[in-house]
Design a protein around this nucleic acid. Structure first.
Length: 275
DNA sequence: CGGATACACTTGTACCGCAG
DNA sequence: CTGCGGTACAAGTGTATCCG
């Protein structure tokens, strides 16, 4: 099983360099780039890869952090408990394709009751989670199209005065924030060994910061029961059972996208990213 | 080669709207 | 009025690229 997941994220420095150079020569040229995908496990339970527009799952044009050798993610061994415990407990087939998304260090904002959100590493989302989602799911999660690059702050022209962004405080040099946009999201369930599965949450990428987050009302309840705490390093695994129909009859029910969050043990943590 | 600069990403905080 | 959910914004940090 390690072999299977490894196939998704093999890092080819030469290819990456080529891609980067191509990008520099022609900024919009990232369509048709090599897509990290589990070729050893052709999508038995995912939609055909060609159902997704190429630019919907092409790797991020400049995965800068991912290029750094010190930060290249080693795909961990698929945890045994996933197929032995988690999938059966969720009522899912235990031969589902399970995809490693990324590892991250849990921050206090991830656990903050006021924030009510869990941030997912952008690189893992773009490179490993996005390829396994359908166009409709990508659209729901605001992942179908890459956000336009934001100009650097220093280069910004003085902002033209926009009525909705102005307030009485403007004259006092206090800039009011505009009301946030409602992003909606793709229904997902978080899964933890201690907490079990969360209620239905929403996966969404915010247009403002391009950050991908999981949010929703039941999130804090899940956090209170889960096994990880601030500063813990966790691995994030994704799986989803697709509907299988035979002769017009539903043989296998479609499930939510599940994100299994597994806290690493001490030895694994030592091997994790440079702190 | 090494410093300067540009850029991407993460994190923390401020703010808005709504429900109770 | 207050607390909460949801989001925008900006500072901080790390890495890639440029340039002398």
């Amino acid at each position: 099983m390690g072999k299977r997941t490894l196939a998704m994220v093999l890092y080819d420095p030469a290819a990456a360099h080529q891609q980067r150079d191509a990008k520099r020569a022609r900024p919009s040229a990232h369509a048709g780039a090599v897509v990290p995908y589990d070729t050893a496990q052709p999508a038995a339970n995912v939609e055909p890869i060609n159902a997704v527009p190429l630019n919907a799952f092409a790797p991020h044009p400049r995965p800068r952090r991912a290029l750094a050798p010190a930060i290249i993610q080693q795909v961990p061994e698929e945890p045994a408990c996933l197929r032995e415990l988690i999938l059966p407990a969720l009522g899912l087939r235990n031969d589902l394709a399970v995809h490693f998304v990324d590892s991250k260090r849990v921050t206090d904002t991830d656990l903050d009751a006021h924030q009510n959100r869990f941030r997912l590493p952008a690189d893992g989302v773009l490179r490993r989670l996005r390829p396994i989602l359908t166009p409709g799911e990508l659209d729901a999660a605001n992942l179908l199209h890459d956000p336009l690059p934001k100009p650097r702050r220093q280069q910004l022209e003085p902002e033209p005065l926009q009525l909705e962004s102005l307030t009485a405080d403007e004259g006092k040099n206090v800039r009011k924030k505009r009301q946030g946009m409602v992003h909606g999201g793709l229904p997902v369930r978080l899964v933890d060994l201690a907490a079990g599965a969360s209620g239905e949450l929403l996966l969404s990428r915010w247009s403002s910061s391009s950050g991908t987050i999981v949010k929703g009302g039941g999130f804090m309840d899940f956090v209170r029961r889960c096994s990880f705490r601030e500063h813990d390093v966790v691995d994030i695994w994704a799986f989803k059972q697709r509907e299988v129909r035979l002769f017009g009859k539903t043989m296998v029910q479609e499930s939510h996208l599940h994100l299994f969050i597994l806290k690493r043990d001490g030895t694994q943590q030592q091997q994790s990213r440079q702190e």
